[in-house]
Computed example of a mutant assay.
Amino acid sequence: MAEWGERLAGVRGVLLDISGVLYDGDAGGGTPISGSVEAVARLKRSHLKVRFCTNESQKSRGKLVGRLRQLGFDICEEEVTAPAPAACQILKEQGLRPHLLIHDEVRSEFDQIDTSNPNCVVIGDAGEAFSYQNMNKAFQVLMELEKPVLISLGRGRYYKETSGLMLDVGGYMKALEYACGIKAEVVGKPSPEFFKSALRAIGVEAPQAR
């Protein structure tokens, strides 16, 4: 106990991953990892500030939080840092109009974004929408641009569901990078700016967080 007390000395905040840390997803909605509901509750009763960070790009924040609450977690949408809202902020700031290669369940996050006459591509974990036709359309959009911009909602290789390991967005992102000779801007883990935005949200400096 003393050792843990020393490790937590000066710590003011905690960043928690969600998928594979709090719960394992599946077609039925997922199941909590043993002890995770209680651990989150204990953290929230402590003096520590808590922020949830996720690369989830198959669900909107609202749907993700709704499912987590059904599983027993004490969590609200405003406590979650996710790549889709962060990408929307970038699109607005840079005047970008995306061609979206994303999962239908996350499209609502982009409702206020102009997608006419695209001048960039946003790619997320599109699941079954990762067909040849859809990948080729994203490729064509990028190749037609004088200065192609590819924004990826994460660059994970794979993730775990109760049914097994699932291929993530990173492989598809790399395919477009290679085909178009460009470098994607990653919005989400492991981008340092993603974690910095989560820390800013809870008013904690990096040395004060775990």
Rank of each mutant, 00 (worst) to 15 (best):
H47S: 13
I18N: 15
E6R: 10
L8G: 10
E38Q: 05
I90Y: 01
Q70A: 13
V80L: 09
G29F: 06
I90L: 11
L43M: 03
A9S: 12
E79P: 04
L48C: 01
Y23G: 05
E79D: 15
V80A: 13
R67P: 04
A86L: 14
D17P: 11
H47V: 07
E79Q: 11
Y23Q: 10
L96T: 02
V40L: 12
R97I: 14
R61K: 10
L16F: 11
G28F: 10
Q94T: 15
R61M: 07
G30D: 05
S57G: 06
L68P: 06
S46F: 07
I18R: 12
R7S: 06
G95Y: 15
V21H: 10
L71F: 13
V21K: 05
G30L: 07
R61H: 03
V40T: 03
A87I: 08
F52C: 07
I18A: 15
F73V: 04
Q58H: 06
N55P: 00
E79S: 10
D17Q: 13
K92C: 07
G20F: 05
G62N: 01
L22F: 09
S36H: 02
G28N: 14
K49E: 06
L68C: 08
P98M: 11
Q94S: 15
L48T: 06
V50Y: 01
A39M: 02
G72D: 14
S60Q: 09
R45S: 12
R7L: 07
S57M: 04
F52R: 00
V65I: 02
